[in-house]
Nucleic acid binder design. Structure first.
Lengths: 367, 367
DNA sequence: AATTAGCACTCTGTATGTTTAAGTGCTAAT
DNA sequence: ATTAGCACTTAAACATACAGAGTGCTAATT
């Protein structure tokens, strides 16, 4: 045997014993045991517990050896020298990606979701708010919902109403029934019957071209060149400066008003939040909204479910928390938003993920 | 001197020394000292501190005597035998009613309020949400805003739009520019031009009678008797069952969607919330919304500012918290709601009260 | 008669030491 | 390769001592 061959063999063996990319069977089993044990008790899991509870008939001493390597590779850590082990963010991530078997969502839960999202005549606001509460109730963590971006949603109808002198209300109805209204001021008063003529003209375009608000704007800007009545320039100045904005970004909801947060009463009872600093961080994170909106924004544009596990290295803005998100998309109506559940790192992923999946799918169907 | 007279004199003296309804000057001064001392340090105030800081040149021993009577009367208490004194809910109440000198709201704060509530074209939702954030920012506690009851608000316009077969969207515009929309299903499809005829008919009534939604409903029920086209009965069945409800209560906002809560990040930093149970109670109270809505509802209907100081005896639903509320009312538009600030009992009342006063007045003016 | 100095007493919070239980890493034996 | 055994580490629980803050009461003073 060549020296090189021997060296290669050693490397292989080392890799077999401990593959950093994809743990071997035994390590996986033990990591799974630690994570599930920690889910149950919320306190560090020791080698003895694993030795007794796992299928591998190994002594605690052997388990300890493997645990030492798992720790070296960053999947678990010890809060102090002689304590048991706790999964790290990397450990949870590996669990979610490779170890977890997701539960099926129960029929009772399915029915609950269907009933609560279809009963009553609700506008979009009402539905999204209801979804945030529903997610909190089902998961026992905190549900969050990002309102959709309507910039590309198909229009159905636009109506102008004169509220008082020089003050006009624009009502925009999208094809899916969502309405948006903006009041704005103009420099010269316009009578209601003239306004109605304007609305009718716009509605003709909408019906003919089947366009979005962005699309409508483009058409209007184009028509402005050959505009004899000065009609489009009034629209452009007065109306579009108020219902869209110049840079082309449609602020369907004000930044501070586009996140629905469900009740967090159950979440704060989790043992990780018996620590005062932890609970304050949680409340500030949720109440500040900014970072959650940012993460939900990622998912909105990504088309697939995402799991943000907050650590010091990655997603530090939610360090110590987990956020599971999924988009809701209506291809027909061209609207798109996202939902999520915030909980501790020690979240019941296998239960929560199917809930998020089902709710996002169901929501996509009804909006 | 008669025995009776002597007895009366004794009683009077006792009353002078300690009048349960209206403390004598010295007691008031000491109670004020305790409350203001407690505002500053958030820890029990002892007799020595008062002796040194107050204008009354008394020894700590004398102060102790008076403190004992104040305690007997329920204005202050000791957390344990040899601690200083802390104001009770009754103490705070007395302070707010009789001792407090409210500060004037600063020009800078006034300007801040005006700028933040008038800038940008905002719908009512946006304004109320902004008010909740504004109240949080100014007070450093948590601002809350109850959405108005629109049942008596004057109508401006109603519009029906056919979304798809048998599915109609009703847009209701109130005189102050608030819009509400409800989608509903009917048993027989109606074409858009017929719907427009219906809207026009309703708008004629609205313009002529200048009525509220409740008023419109009554008119329609009356007209149903002499209804040849069967028009009003369709309206009554389809539309009013969805936009109002049978019992006459107009659910402008769903119960769970009518409270705006500002950021609570500053509030949880108050020393009373370093206790874990306290912070959980706070978060649950705010996140549950029910009790806060109830208290804000009181104020909405009462026309005057109210201060709820939560103790075990009174307003126990916010025990350990204070809620200062004021209504906002637009007489012209007949709409009415309320705003509030939630904080610890040890709240900076003299600063917060003028803020609430000014914001509620300003808001009344712009809605 | 009102006020106060003085003092014994009570309670909290902090520091300190002790013990127990849990869990580890390492070594030598299997 | 695995494990029994053991010395070691740490947190948590408990007991003890002690300083500091503040009280209520009594006797002395104004």
């Amino acid at each position: 045997m060549h020296l090189l061959q021997i060296y290669m063999k050693t490397l292989e063996e080392k890799a077999e014993k401990f593959n950093y990319n994809d743990l071997n069977e035994r390590s996986r089993e033990i990591l799974l045991g630690i994570i599930e044990g920690y889910f149950g008790t919320a306190s560090p899991v020791g080698s003895k517990f694993i030795a007794e509870s796992s299928k591998l008939n190994l002594s605690s001493a052997s388990i300890r050896n493997i645990m030492a390597s798992l720790e070296e590779a960053g999947y678990i850590y010890q809060p102090h020298f002689s304590a048991g082990r706790i999964p790290t963010a990397k450990g949870y991530k590996f669990y979610v990606d490779s170890l977890m078997k997701t539960e099926k969502i129960s029929i009772k839960e399915k029915e609950d979701i269907e009933i609560r999202l279809t009963s009553a005549n609700r506008d979009l606001n009402g539905i999204l708010n209801q979804v945030s509460i529903l997610l909190s109730d089902l998961s026992h963590y905190a549900g969050v919902v990002l309102a959709p971006d309507m910039s590309e949603a198909n229009l159905l109808h636009i109506e102008f109403i004169r509220i008082k002198e020089k003050n006009i209300l624009a009502i925009i109805v999208f094809a899916n029934g969502v309405t948006e209204n903006k009041s704005f001021y103009i420099t010269k008063d316009i009578k209601q019957n003239e306004l109605t003529r304007y609305s009718n003209k716009l509605n003709e375009i909408i019906e003919k071209k089947n366009c979005s608000l962005d699309g409508l704007k483009e058409i209007i800007i184009e028509e402005m060149h050959s505009d004899k009545e000065n009609f489009y320039s009034i629209l452009n100045m007065g109306i579009f400066s108020s219902i869209g904005n110049v840079s082309g970004y449609w602020d369907y909801k004000h930044y501070d008003n586009c996140l629905y947060v469900g009740p967090e009463g159950d979440l704060i009872e989790e043992p990780e939040f018996s620590n005062n600093e932890q609970i304050k961080f949680l409340i500030k994170t949720i109440s500040d909204k900014k970072n959650i909106i940012k993460l939900l924004g990622h998912t909105k544009n990504s088309k697939t479910k995402q799991i943000f596990i907050g650590s010091e290295d990655e997603w530090s803005e939610i360090s110590g928390l987990s956020l599971i998100t999924a988009p809701y998309i209506s291809e027909i109506n061209m609207i798109r938003g996202s939902i999520g559940i915030i909980g501790p790192l020690r979240m019941n992923y296998s239960h929560v993920i199917p809930i998020i999946d089902f709710v996002s799918e169901f929501l996509s169907g009804i909006i």
